[in-house]
Design a protein around this nucleic acid. Structure first.
Length: 302
DNA sequence: TGCAGTGTTGCTTC
DNA sequence: CGAAGCAACACTGC
């Protein structure tokens, strides 16, 4: 689900609702033994430490870095959340069912979200409301970092530049992508160590708009095309934010409500449909490229 | 009914 | 180092 526009939508929602609130309690039912998750709340031992650290702290700010949400707390602490495939952060009123060790939305909770049944972490706030982390597939990540050094942590240190930052220009963009001369453009666009924020949906859309085949090698792309990809990447990511994210799959904002960017798709999940580019007679096809499904026009993307 | 497919990324292998 | 494949997990939809 969540690529830059969806994570940005969630971040903005949190900025509106939870800044200034204090964390009173934390709960989870996650119990993985996966080594890759030792330093996240999925590891029960880590969670105990995490809980102790965040209780009593107040939310100072909420930021986004790549597809990570950073909840900055007092005393140099920051909660990092990555939604991965099916994560949701929901804000509202929930109640705890002790018998089942489960949380349910209360009458003021985000009832709209059918993903409420996958609640795996709940933070209790000092306004009688909660921040719930729902995640059907349990791929998501939640961990605690030291704010002053977090950008050197393994979670953030290898990330490329932000595509929507003012000082990120087409020259820097081209220099980054050119680090992978033999890579397929679609795969390279999604490589978070080169440029952050683009995933499977937006990469398909960017390439449809720029008339470029997803398997075109980086070293076969000319300057003018880089400039076109750059412009369309910024345009489509901004549009995704303006539309409140893409809910073709399960993305919901912090109130459990869907975004609308899925109405703007030209390629993603449109296999078999006629291409809608002006005077193009092609059809959208689907092909697995580097283990990801790519959707593109059989005719105008070259 | 059963099984392929799913937005991400981290690890392994070559 | 880079490229590619697959695993992590559990549900949805064909």
């Amino acid at each position: 689900m969540p690529e830059l526009p969806e994570v940005e939508t969630t971040t903005k929602g949190l900025q509106k609702e939870i800044i200034g609130l204090r964390i009173l309690d934390a709960w989870t039912d996650l119990t993985t033994k996966d080594k890759r998750k030792v330093d996240t709340v999925s590891n029960p031992k880590y969670f105990q430490k995490f809980k102790k650290e965040i209780i009593g702290e107040k939310v100072i700010s909420v930021k986004r870095r790549a597809k990570n949400i950073l909840i900055n707390l007092t005393h140099d602490k920051t909660i990092l959340v990555h939604l991965k495939m099916t994560g949701h952060l929901l804000y509202g009123k929930y109640k705890y069912k002790k018998k089942e060790n489960k949380w349910l939305p209360d009458e003021l909770g985000p009832l709209a979200d059918p993903y409420n049944r996958f609640i795996h972490v709940v933070l209790t706030l000092n306004n009688k409301k909660h921040l719930a982390f729902c995640d059907a597939r349990k791929f998501g990540k939640m961990t605690l970092l030291e704010t002053s050094t977090m950008h050197q942590s393994k979670h953030l240190k290898d990330l490329g530049p932000e595509p929507l930052e003012k000082d990120f220009d087409v020259k820097k963009f081209q220099n980054r992508l050119t680090l992978r001369p033999k890579g397929n453009i679609k795969t390279v666009l999604m490589d978070q160590s080169l440029v952050v924020g683009v995933g499977n949906i937006y990469s398909d859309e960017i390439l449809w708009h720029t008339d470029i085949h997803p398997e075109r090698k980086i070293n076969k792309i000319i300057n003018k095309e880089f400039s076109n990809i750059f412009k369309n990447m910024k345009k489509l990511l901004s549009k995704g934010i303006d539309f409140g994210g893409d809910s073709m799959s399960d993305y919901r904002n912090i109130y459990g409500l869907p975004g609308e960017f899925q109405t703007q798709h030209r390629a993603y999940l449109k296999a078999g449909e006629k291409c809608t580019k002006k005077s193009c007679t092609g059809v959208i096809i689907k092909k697995v490229i580097n283990n990801r499904s790519a959707h593109f026009c059989s005719k105008h993307q070259k």
